[in-house]
Amino acid sequence: MPTLQEIAWKTDGPDIRFVSGHRMCSGCGIGAIVKTVLAASDKPVVVVNATGCLEVVTTTYPFTSWNTPWMHLTFENAASVASGIEAAYKALKRSGKITDDVNILAIGGDGGTYDIGFQALSGALERRHKFMYLVYDNEAYMNTGDQRSGATPFGANTTTVPVGKVSFGKPQWRKNLVEIAAAHRIPYVAQTAAHSIMDLYKKAQKGFNADGPAVLAVLQPCTTNWAFDPSLTMQYSKLAVETNFWPLYEVENGVVHINVKPSNRKPIEEFLKGQTRFRHLFKPENAHVIVEMQKMIDDEWARLLKIEESGIQF
C-alpha cells in the first residue's frame, strides 16, 4: 500500500491528471475525490463524465481541467458511453489499430447515477464491461440548486420536497446503491468517502484492477447546499462515517467487508447539526424524525454486520 506521500506525488506531482483552474465551489470535495481516483490507475484513464457539477465546472469552453482523455455526452448515459468506449477499446486493440492500455472510468453524481442514469448503469454492469463507475454522492441535484434525488436522505429539506407546515422534508429512505450494484454479481463494489483518501485510493485501485465492472460510491459533502463552512467538508465526511450514516465497506467478489467500525458510534445529531438541510429536525415537533433516523441507521448497521459475519456472498 502506498504512503500518503506517494499518493500526493501522483495526485499533485508532475504526472497530475486533474489540474487547477476548475470552477468547483470553494471547499468542494469532488476535486480531492477525482484526483485521488485518477491517481490510483497505473494506466492512462479514459473518462466519461455524466452531466453534473463536475462536468460543468471542469470543462467550461475553452477551459478543461482534464489532463487525461475525457468526454461528456449527456446526463443519464455515462455507463452506456463507457460500454461503447470499452467495446471500441477491445475492437481497436484486437485489430492492432491502438496499442496503449487504458482504464475506463465513468463518473456521475447521485442524480446521474441513482436516478436518471440507473438503467444505463444496470445494463452496463450486467453486460460486464470492464470499467469503473464512480459516483460522487452529494445527496441531491446540487448543480441546479438542491433538488431531491434517490440518494437524498430521510428528513432532508430540498427544494422539490421542502419542509413545510405538514412536511418534515423527504419522507423516504435513500436507495442503497452498493447493494444494488452488488446484486449484479460484479467483481467489486465499494463505498467510501471524500475524507478517507487512503481508503478511496485503495478502493479505486481495486476497482481499476477488477476483472470486470466495478462501482465506487463516494460521499461528497456539499458545502454549498448542505450549507456548512467550506473548511468543514472533510469533517462532515468523517462524521458521516463515525455516525454509521455512511459505512465504509466493500463487496469483493460478493464478500462483504466493513473497512471501518467506529468503536463508539456518534449519535446522528453530530452529523446533522450545522447542515441547513437538517436544521428543521431540531425543532421539538420533528424530534421523532431524528429518532426514526437513528433507528434506521442502527438497524442498517446491525444488518451490515450480520452480512459480514455470515460470510454469505452477494
Partner: peptide
C-alpha cells in the same frame, strides 16, 4: 450512447 462513446473513442 454506446455508439457515440465508441465513435469518440476512435
Amino acid at each position: 450512447s454506446a455508439v457515440v462513446g465508441a465513435e469518440t473513442a476512435g
